[in-house]
Amino acid sequence: MNEEEIEKKINESWQAGNSNPASDGQKEASWKKFQAEKFPQQKPKKWYYGIAASFLVIAATLTGVLFQKNKLATTNTSAYQIIENPTTHIKTIFLPDSSKVNLAANAQLSFPENFKTHRNVELKGEAVFEVKKDSAHPFTVKSQLTTTRVLGTIFKVKNLSAKHTEVNLYEGSVQLQVEGRDKNWIIAPGEVFVFKNDAIDIESFELFKEFKETPLKDFVTYIQKNYGFQLVFPDDISHKKITLKLNRQEPLEHIIAIVAQLYQYSYQKSNTDQKIYFATNN
């Protein structure tokens, strides 16, 4: 019996089985009887193995594709919240753990929805962080190639480019890591960590800003640059001077209260237009 006749017999048996449904056991017994009668000593043709091998390869390939899709789906399930500051002034935000962030103009901050147990944020641009202490959940800031890890402190991260990041520490202690480096760096208040073009340096800066008989208009410029609020006075201030020593991260409310007391003003803060209006006390 040639291969054409064999194939014909197989088709006839298959069609007969489909037209008269039988149990799996009956089908298997019929096939074995047919096989024994027509080619009792004949070994299976190699093309059967080829077809079987092809099915295995296809199955393995599909399994691999499904695995890759599932893997990608898993890695993207963590939802992130993104906060942007498209304005020209500083934007103050509070994270779910009550940590305070002063986000500079054109900066962006992202953090996971499960932030309270995974206090990890990613920063693009510049921001000052006032981190709530939580020893069980360290706070980390990823900014390009650097990672700043803290427990509770006040610091500023300035991301100037992909290979230029600066971290100023005002209070507490932070540990810094740079991608691709085994060493960790710890800085103290009054120090700034500078990573620029693969070089690392730790420099010092003044923790306090001191004004000695400084024109009040220069003080106004400092407040607007560092806090994002414009001070508006009821009269000409060109002749006025101020003497004051401030922590560089002194809360704005404290500063304004001091200025109001020095010049006997009352004041009103407007978050709408980012201005603080002073008025003469009657």
Rank of each mutant, 00 (worst) to 15 (best):
E28T: 13
G180W: 04
E12K: 15
A29Q: 04
I242Y: 01
F278V: 03
V157G: 11
T243W: 11
S110W: 01
N168V: 02
D201M: 09
Y267T: 01
H118K: 02
Q177W: 06
W185Y: 14
T165N: 07
L160A: 05
E171A: 03
V141D: 08
V121A: 00
K69P: 00
I237H: 14
Q230L: 14
G190A: 11
T153N: 01
K196I: 12
D198N: 15
V150E: 08
N159D: 07
Q261Y: 10
S266V: 05
D24N: 15
D182E: 15
Q35H: 12
H137S: 07
R181T: 11
K8W: 09
R149C: 04
E191K: 07
K209I: 08
L109C: 05
T221C: 00
Y170D: 04
K245I: 06
E191T: 06
L66P: 03
S99H: 05
F55V: 06
T63N: 11
N226P: 10
K71E: 12
S30G: 12
K8D: 13
K156L: 13
S78P: 11
A53C: 00
K209R: 13
N2V: 10
Q264I: 09
I154F: 05
K158P: 02
K217N: 15
Q41R: 05
K38H: 14
K71R: 13
E3C: 04
F111T: 01
N159V: 08
K142M: 10
I6V: 12
T148A: 13
K91H: 11
S23D: 10
N70T: 10
T148R: 04
N85Y: 03
S161Y: 07
N70P: 13
K71I: 12
S110L: 02
E206I: 09
E4K: 05
I187T: 01
R149Y: 01
F111A: 00
A36T: 06
G190D: 11
G180Y: 07
S54C: 08
K45C: 00
S270W: 00
G17C: 15
V220S: 09
A22P: 02
I83W: 10
L56W: 02
A73G: 00
G190I: 13
R181N: 15
E166Y: 06
I51Y: 06
Y222F: 14
A162S: 15
S13V: 15
R119W: 00
P40L: 08
L72H: 13
P21T: 14
G17A: 15
T280G: 06
